[in-house]
């Protein structure tokens, strides 16, 4: 992958803005602190940009392609973390414990790269599911094997694919994944 100057400048600017904002937050917006922060913001931005263009693993951009789809993913995520927290809290207080856990392999259709990592992280915050390992496939621990966790995972995967503009045709083919029970 060749690095073009505009791409480098764009990436550097994004990082400068992000790190400056973080520093401003950390120091409660004090003006005296800005002088201290400037060199660190600058060096962190430069180092992060250089790493971004040297790394092989993250050669695909993690920057979300579609803001509207990102908003939908965030809304979906917030709603499901609310459900997830309620669900597990209610289970914790019931007697006997309403748990039917199981360990299952979810056939991942997202292409290798940063998106499966994002998927694995979000899975653990969804109701009743916990990501275990991520090596090409996604192993998920579910609290209740009779719940509709499979539909939730599919919808999450689709939302992530939408954000990064991943064409359905590009998805890994999974011949038959309806027999998950």
């Amino acid at each position: 992958m060749t690095v073009t100057l505009p791409a480098f400048v764009t990436a550097l600017t994004q990082r400068l803005l992000l790190f400056a904002l973080l520093w401003w937050l950390l120091t409660d917006g004090q003006h005296e602190a800005a002088l201290f922060g400037a060199p660190f913001v600058l060096s962190a931005a430069v180092l992060s940009t250089v790493t971004r263009f040297r790394g092989q693993v993250l050669s695909a951009s993690l920057w979300p392609a579609r803001p509207l789809a990102l908003m939908r993913l965030i809304g979906f995520f917030l709603w499901h973390s609310l459900r997830g927290g309620l669900d597990v809290t209610l289970r914790a207080f019931r007697r006997p414990l309403p748990l039917k856990p199981d360990l299952i392999d979810y056939p991942l259709r997202l292409p290798p790269g940063p998106t499966p990592i994002l998927m694995a992280s979000l899975v653990s915050l969804m109701p009743g599911t916990l990501a275990v390992i991520c090596e090409g496939r996604l192993r998920v621990h579910v609290l209740d094997r009779h719940s509709d966790w499979y539909r939730d995972l599919e919808r999450l995967e689709q939302r992530i694919g939408d954000v990064y503009h991943i064409d359905r045709a590009q998805w890994n083919d999974v011949p038959n994944h309806s027999d998950h029970n």
């Binding site: 997830g84 927290g85 809290t89 914790a92 915050l125 009743g128 916990l130 275990v132 621990h141 609290l143």
Partner: peptide, 14 residues
């Protein structure tokens, strides 16, 4: 595994 469920979900929401 089930304990991790309790910790991650309830505490994040909390």
């Amino acid at each position: 595994y089930t304990r991790l469920h309790a910790l991650t979900k309830a505490d994040n929401l909390g």
